[in-house]
Amino acid sequence: MSIELLIPLLAAAVQSGTPVLFATLGELVTERSGTLNLGVEGMLLMGAFSGFFVCILTGSPWLGFVAGGVGAMLLASLHGLVTIVFLGNQVVSGLALTILGVGLADFLGQPFIGQKVAGFSKYALPGLADLPALGPIFFRQDALVYCSYLAAPLVWFLFARTSLGLALDAAGENPKAAKAAGLSVASLRWFGLLAGAFLAGLGGAYLSLAYTQFWTSNLSAGRGWIAVALVIFAFWRPRGAVLGAYLFGGVMAFQLRLQAAGANLPSSLLLMLPYAMTILALIAANLRKGRAGAPAALGVNVEPEE
């Protein structure tokens, strides 16, 4: 493949990977604090809707972007209420959250069907955009993609360098010990859940404000589930999340480009590619470095004690 085709492909990989990246990072934060939230798809859609709604209301895409995060947080707080306060099953609660979020976004979004919003357009970063190869791939995107460049290191920094990150990990790995050390596991899990939901909501807002700039139902089209899978693919590490999201976006963009280039292959087989690649990549990663596990207390509720 020639370089003229490769660069747009990689740029497309970055763009289509971005919503998934936000969602994956969010789920990663949540899971590392010990909460499994399978409601990512619902949070993406609520984020997309709230972002769109606020942007239309105020005319400010940035307010919309933040509102996307807040919308998803509101939805996720239900998950917190059910699982952290009332100790309900995290799997069912997360799935219920998806069902509820998809329904709510659809229901509330009805008056906005087919409406357009003035969201984020491409903005070439001065200086960086002219770098050979890297410029067109990474620095001629929209502002929200640049935000995602900040989000990943931020999450990495949180877990690698701060005591808050350490505490979050403790709540996810060994809540009993965390409690013994004087940490409030419930507060930590609330933080992990809401911070993660905020990130996922940003991913949703990215879909309705930057990637496409109109409202229809089911805008996320299953990307939330991909994010759930990618967290595992990333072995709960931010670096892996970046790799996974861009890889997934890249393979998707690649199969579309293969068709556009006139490859005469059945599209059903091409569409299997991204999913098959994910499994293969996971096998390869497993063979290479041995087992890296989930947070030990992932999905396990912490009961109050006397």
Partner: peptide
């Protein structure tokens, strides 16, 4: 709208879960 079903279903599930507490 059909979305109403999703909202109802989500609500029931979440409140049953919370209620089991």
């Amino acid at each position: 709208p059909a979305a109403f079903g999703g909202i109802l279903e989500g609500c029931i599930l979440l409140s049953v879960l919370a209620g089991q507490f």
